[in-house]
Nucleic acid binder design. Structure first.
Lengths: 230, 230
DNA sequence: GATAATATCTATCGATTGACACAGTGTATC
DNA sequence: GATACACTGTGTCAATCGATAGATATTATC
């Protein structure tokens, strides 16, 4: 019997011991999936790296795909947690027909900054960033879930704000493309951190601040070109 | 004996027949590598899809990696061909100490537009775009070559122009990050075309023009914020 | 300590992978 | 028409993949 969902924590006749094992598998799997992709990372590598037996993966996650989906769910939950600091205010402003262009622009900047926070904080950031980037490229089972979440948590809010600032409809293909270009400013930093550029720069605390500043400045410049301040 | 390099075209004691086979393999391999990645695409799939035998891949390209590298070389050559319309003028302007900020900005826009052309023209664009995106994520043998070429043909010229416009050094990490954000506006369009967004928009002729316009407008807005026109 | 659920082990399955040996077919050149 | 080279076919190899069977170990509950 497979216990994909049960972690055994606190249940009668249960040991909390397995929780460590489960976490070790998740951590190693995240690193390997990020580095080599879904097909490239083998369950044997993961098991060996996590210091567990091969059937442990099946025991805790059912199969390889279940393991992958568990990782993605973690990232999705983390993303929602970070974005929840901004999204309510974004929705409120969008519901307010009298929201000024300046207010909407400020919220757009904050949304993008929250996105930067998502991809630069927490444990194993570099691997999580790579999974993020892979979600835009690969067709692995489960990555559509992550892409969908990115649309809901990041793209659509930015699209709504940006379209409102432009005075255009959210359904306008032009606004979709403009928003893609806007978000691309952040997404590109999710690339492979082993590349010389990102290795030279390094997304440590100081550069993360700089990154937010750059995104804000360039976003402000773009918005001002559309809706100049009075 | 493997004849990785010889295509047999026009050489004495040679048949031109194999050229078609070689091309068919390349085309099918490009699609499959783009869709499923290097590890995900099997040589059997490629051979079957191209309508050839499995050893044909070995015959023409030595091994799977050789086939992959051949594809990348094609894309690299194509990129160099497209960028050659702008890069000489960029180098000339960079060598000219009296080049105005407006001139440098215009060249930056043209460089980015040429980049858009690279990722939106030619046969099998969608697959080539995906390979482009994968180059920023994966660590497949040969992709470093492609990434390196992207640095040389696109990133470094943009960095040099952008730094000059800002009046800062090319070696400044801040300028590296700013240039990444700038180029990210275009790179994000290289994502999976099967995703709902890109499927709804579609990078056909009309939208490619719109895309160039958007990139130009937003780049101009960013540059103007730094070096305001007199 | 008996029982049952949780957790981990060894060993192996069938399928697929990339690569290869080697025979056969075609055409051009002399 | 004989030879050489370019090309395509069949069959098979060792390695690796994900998955499973089944035995054993550990621990909580009674």
């Amino acid at each position: 019997m497979i216990n994909i969902q049960t972690t055994g924590r606190g249940r009668p006749g249960t040991q909390a011991r397995g929780e460590d094992t489960r976490r070790r598998i998740l951590e190693k799997a995240l690193d390997l999936f990020a580095a080599h992709g879904y097909e490239g990372a083998s369950t044997r590598q993961i098991a060996e790296g996590a210091g567990v037996n091969l059937p442990a993966i099946q025991y805790y996650f059912g199969n390889k795909e279940g393991l992958y989906r568990a990782i993605i769910e973690d990232i999705v939950a983390d993303t929602e947690r970070h974005m929840s600091t901004v999204l309510p205010r974004v929705r409120a402003a969008l519901d307010d027909p009298e929201a000024t262009s300046a207010e909407l622009t400020e919220l757009l900047c904050q949304t993008l900054e929250a996105f930067v926070t998502v991809v630069t904080s927490g444990p194993q950031v570099e691997s999580r960033r790579l999974i993020f980037a892979r979600a835009e490229v690969e067709e692995t089972p489960g990555l559509d879930r992550m892409h969908e979440n990115g649309m809901q948590q990041i793209f659509n809010p930015c699209l709504a704000l940006f379209a409102r600032i432009h005075g255009k409809s959210e359904g306008d293909p032009e606004m979709t493309m403009r928003t893609m270009a806007l978000i691309g400013q952040v997404v590109i930093f999710c690339n492979n951190h082993k590349r010389p550029i990102l290795k030279a720069v390094g997304l440590d605390g100081e550069n993360v601040q700089l990154m937010k500043q750059i995104v804000r400045e360039q976003t402000l410049a773009i918005c001002r070109a559309v809706a100049p301040e009075k």
